[in-house]
Nucleic acid binder design. Structure first.
Length: 362
RNA sequence: GCACAGGUGGGUGAGUGGUUAAAGCCAACAGACUGUAAAUCUGUCCCUCUCAGGAGGUACGGAGGUUCGAAUCCUCCCCUGUGCA
């Protein structure tokens, strides 16, 4: 899932995303709540219509901002008091509020409001944080159950571009009978597993989140500065405790190598700002490894960015030109770089899917 | 020709006797980036030596001078801009 925090994947338009084969985007509760505000989005017919996106949308709950805006917030049992990073104004996000906003935005998948535990954290701190996330998860589900018919759009208005490749989402969508199943006319609420870097806490968090019952489960609290091997260990051990017949969503990961590994390991969904942010910063992912296009060595390099890539950028432009665009601070650099990186990520996922469909598994 | 103003490191531009190898910005070069406060951030950026801490050498138009000490003060010269002839 490319990340489109503010209702836009930076540097790239919706029609190009569709052309790239993007089926689902991530948006953000906190940011869209601050600007343009839920009421505006609701009045515009929900986030899909507002941003003219025919695919699916998952909204993050604002839980990550609890982690990243550390200087601007205060966490209590009730919720999180924020100061807006835009104008310093005071706001309060609670599980109920996060649900209300996400219902208003009308995303296909909404995330429970969690606390993304910082790293490093003591076991006690990780447990307390996990317990808070569990209590919040119950509140989220309760609020959602009571208000889930308030979504501002009906699914039939959205002409899906979902392809048959999106089997996991589809199966979840059709699953309306089991515990935590979602009505296809409404939205799905996913729970989030926390537990820091402790395998035992992760297990407990997973089991208790499953007890609450959701149509999909996310592994949160990773990619927060810990060593990558630790991320891998925690992901793999947590995965074992999550039902394989529900989407398993690993939040905030990762590099092309990582997403391939995790997908092969059983992760069904991932989101990451890396492809888009790195693109804007001149870091491009290719079949030959990372290419920092700003480097002087590419100044007169006529070759394609990635000879093995069939994206519009690689078919048409030279490394020399891409470097020049970057050095000259041309907007087109960001557009083209983003296009390539997203294409590369999506191509990576297509390869993994084919591999899995071929009967492989880890 | 006269009168003002000014000549600083790749560029721009601070600095008007010591704490200045010389601010800041730009350029250049390298690095970082993983549920987006990110078209962002960090480092290097006169030369030589050192693994590092650091050591040495050059340097503020030129040449002299004053001073313990000068990019900073004085003299002459060169150059640039503006105004007046």
């Amino acid at each position: 899932m490319p990340v489109g925090t503010l209702g836009s994947v930076k540097g790239i338009s919706q029609d190009v995303l569709e052309e790239l084969g993007v089926e689902i985007l991530l948006g953000n509760t906190y940011h869209l709540y601050l600007r343009p505000g839920v009421e505006t989005v609701r009045k515009m017919g929900g986030l899909h219509r507002f941003m003219s996106w025919n695919g699916a949308i998952l909204t993050d709950s604002g839980g990550f901002q609890v982690f990243s805006l550390t200087d601007l917030r205060k966490v209590t049992e009730e919720g999180v008091a924020f100061r807006s990073h835009l104008d310093g104004s005071a706001h309060f996000l609670s599980p109920e509020k996060a649900m209300e906003i996400q219902i208003g935005l009308g995303a296909d998948i909404m995330m429970a409001f969690d606390e993304c535990t910082e790293y490093p954290a003591t076991r006690e701190r990780a447990r307390a944080s996990m317990e808070l996330t569990l209590r919040w998860a119950e509140r989220c589900k309760k609020y959602f159950e009571e208000h889930k018919n308030e979504v501002p759009w009906s699914r039939s208005q959205v002409s899906g571009v979902r392809s048959e490749e999106n089997e996991v989402l589809r199966s979840a969508q059709d699953d309306t009978t089991t515990k935590g199943g979602w009505d296809r006319q409404t939205q799905a609420l996913f729970g989030i597993v926390q537990g820091g870097m402790d395998a035992e806490l992760r297990r407990e968090s997973a089991l208790r989140t499953i007890d609450i019952g959701f149509p999909g489960y996310a592994i949160g609290g990773l990619s927060v500065g810990e060593p990558r091997e630790l991320t891998r260990d925690i992901v793999l051990s947590t995965l074992e405790h999550l039902p394989s017949d529900r989407p398993r969503y690993l939040m905030g990961v990762g590099t092309p190598e990582e997403i391939a590994l995790y997908a092969q390991s059983g992760v069904d969904m991932m989101d990451c700002v890396l492809p888009t942010r790195a693109a804007r910063h001149g870091l491009l992912f290719t079949s030959e490894g990372k290419v920092s296009i700003k480097q002087a060595r590419y100044a007169q390099d006529e070759s394609a960015l990635d000879p093995a890539c069939d994206c519009r950028v690689c078919r048409r432009y030279s490394r020399a030109y891409l470097r020049h665009l970057y050095a000259a601070n041309e907007l087109l650099a960001q557009v083209l770089n983003t296009m390539h990186n997203l294409h590369y990520y999506l191509a990576t996922m297509r390869t993994v899917r084919a591999w899995i469909r071929g009967g492989n598994q880890m």
